[in-house]
């Protein structure tokens, strides 16, 4: 018994140590620097500078707008894709090929994929060429340097996460429940909305939280696709660390982003709690 407990201790010690050393301490350093100033010692000045300034709220709004839209679009596109993979594809080899196609982009760097979108979304890029040749527009649309451009890049990069989480939830749904609903006279749509969708809601939520937290803290994709003309909070924090060397103000920007994100995720989980049947039972 004692030796088992010792083994458990050693098994836990390493991850705890790694977590503390590589995650908590750096975060602690950022937190401390955000509350201090070279001359004044302890101060709230950096937070006052951020929170009492309309400019910063505008950047925060842009950041959240991009993250929320990315999440909504990823869920809206990811659900049908997951449905197709789980319910419609019969051939196992084709399903496997689809999953590989979906996951493959994750093996390349964000930078490379964002550069790819810069080429595709450019004035004379593939997207504009296609829209022009279809006669939908008569002159190139501006994508780069706009929130739409950033959104397209983010959705492309984050979509696999919702497809995978929703797909897993969907695969676990007992088809018998749907058939029972149909037998009792529900239309296919009614059966979906009252039975299937609520049963997959935890998958939707998991995917949404992953996508949202990655989108809100994304730096590379917004930095490249914004062309320096749209600013999100992560870019502002990076700029303070890399060019202005104000680690205090930069730290405060990072902590502000973290707190607002956690608050929103907490709110969202509270709102859906209780509406997720079987969340406790699974």
């Amino acid at each position: 018994m004692a030796s088992a407990r010792l083994t458990l201790f050693w098994l836990l010690a390493l991850p705890v140590l790694v977590f503390t050393g590589f995650f908590l301490i750096p975060l602690g350093v950022v937190l401390v620097s955000s509350f201090t100033a070279p001359e004044d010692g302890l101060t709230l000045a950096h937070y006052a500078r951020i929170l009492l300034d309309a400019y910063h709220w505008q950047v925060i709004a842009t950041t959240f707008r991009i993250a929320i839209f990315s999440t909504l679009i990823c869920v809206a596109l990811g659900y049908p894709l997951a449905w197709y993979l789980v319910r419609i594809v019969q051939l196992r080899s084709w399903r496997r090929a689809c999953v590989i196609l979906l996951v493959l982009p994750l093996f390349t760097s964000n930078i490379v994929r964002s550069f790819g979108w810069m080429v595709l979304l450019g004035r004379s890029g593939l997207v504009n060429d296609a829209l022009m040749s279809l006669g939908l527009i008569d002159r190139p649309m501006r994508f780069l340097g706009t929130e739409t451009g950033i959104l397209i890049g983010m959705v492309y990069i984050l979509l696999p996460f919702t497809v995978l989480t929703i797909g897993t939830a969907l695969a676990r749904v007992d088809r018998g429940l749907e058939q029972a609903a149909r037998d009792l006279g529900a239309t296919p749509a009614r059966a979906f909305w009252s039975v299937t969708f609520p049963l997959t809601l935890h998958g939707v939520m998991a995917g949404a939280i992953i996508v949202f937290s990655m989108a809100i803290s994304a730096y590379v994709t917004p930095a490249l696709l914004s062309g320096g003309k749209v600013t999100v909070l992560a870019m502002l924090a990076f700029q303070q660390y890399s060019t202005v060397f104000d680690f205090h103000y930069g730290g405060a920007l990072s902590i502000t982003l973290l707190v607002l994100t956690l608050a929103l995720i907490g709110l969202a989980s509270r709102m859906t709690r209780g509406r997720t049947p079987g969340a406790g039972g699974h």
Binding site: F115, M118, R123, G125, G227
Partner: peptide, 20 residues
């Protein structure tokens, strides 16, 4: 009226290359 405010030299090269 700018098309790009670049933060890396690579981003500038890319934009000139694609005639952005």
């Amino acid at each position: 009226d700018t098309g790009l405010l670049f933060d890396s030299s690579g981003a500038a090269s890319n934009a000139f290359q694609s005639s952005e």
